[in-house]
Design a protein around this nucleic acid. Structure first.
Ligand SMILES: [Zn+2]
Ligand SMILES: [Zn+2]
Ligand SMILES: [Zn+2]
Ligand SMILES: [Zn+2]
Lengths: 164, 164
DNA sequence: GGTAAAACGATATAATGTACCAACTTTGTC
DNA sequence: GACAAAGTTGGTACATTATATCGTTTTACC
């Protein structure tokens, strides 16, 4: 089981998250012989600005401050599509928003945990859970190819019952 | 483990699905002291026309044929909201579409299995899976309140490896 | 340096979802 | 039945999310 919940939901050196994400992105792009162009990199950085899923139009709004020029929705969606394909980011369907993947490269299927209070999201990947999902759906006659698990609730920081 | 996959994906007497859904809806409404008005009932029937998730605007398009008059998006969304609250239908976030719940009333958290070939969806509810999701997220420090699990793949009917 | 592929800019538009307010219907009470 | 309150619907406008299209620019490669 791997998860970025502990860091994502608590006070931490987020610059390290950002730096690590950017390094991994460069590695992944090199490995895939893909180009991390300025727009794509800036979009990735914006998404990594926090651990809250970010909508495409928020990106459109925030890009001029970083690039100096207005960038239209299609360009942003193209960058998002690129980042999704390389699995550098994930889409959270129920939010129509995107979040950086903390462990791209490693094959994993995620559970996204979205805090209803603070809006932050973390992911956890657990082999036994994925296996049980595969088994359960297989028993129902379904041949699983991909999965999306979203849970909503209270994160570490927002749960009053959690000792800090 | 309960599932409607066997019927949903194969040839079956779908009129029975529809009749059963309508009966359960009447029961649920009576129990909740809620009113299954003509619009709400018609929207529910349209959603139950098949086992394929149906978008809100498809409903808007198809309603005039059943009611004789045009019904605007807000009215459709209100009906959908009502049906969602009574858990007579579910929303499939990745499709922006809605599907009838085959077992409302009984408390359950579902896995939605959406066939990428034929578009049909079925649900399976398994206690041990729900429990494992709760455990896994709990270990990550998350207090789960609700969940959505979607899997994509091939259904019984569309999987060439399935003996029919 | 010529060429093909990839990426980007720009405009328009599609698809999904909601805010708002007026009008109508049902329900409960007198 | 008359009335008030709550619930439901009609209708317009608008907000948000996403994509189609096409011409231009940049990059990669020989
Ligand atoms: Zn961080
Ligand atoms: Zn939180
Ligand atoms: Zn059926
Ligand atoms: Zn199928």
């Amino acid at each position: 089981m791997i998860s970025n919940a502990r860091s994502a939901y608590q006070v931490h050196d987020h610059q390290r998250c950002i730096d690590a994400a950017l390094n991994r992105a460069r590695q992944c792009c090199a490995a895939a012989n893909a180009r991390l162009t300025p727009i794509r990199e800036t979009v990735l950085l914006l998404i990594w600005k926090s651990h809250k899923p970010l909508g495409a139009y928020s990106i459109v709004e925030q890009l001029p401050a970083l690039t100096g020029k207005r960038i239209q929705p299609p360009s942003v969606y193209r960058a998002i599509e690129f980042l999704l394909e390389l699995r550098l980011i994930h889409r959270i369907p129920s939010l129509n928003a995107f979040i950086g993947c903390p462990f791209p490269g490693s094959e994993h299927s995620d559970v996204f945990m979205v805090c209803r209070q603070c809006g932050s999201a973390a992911e956890v990947s657990a082999d036994n859970l994925n296996q049980l999902i595969a088994e359960t759906t297989h028993k129902a006659g379904f041949q699983l190819e991909s999965q999306t698990v979203e849970v909503s609730g209270l994160c570490l920081a927002c749960n009053p019952e959690t000792p800090h």
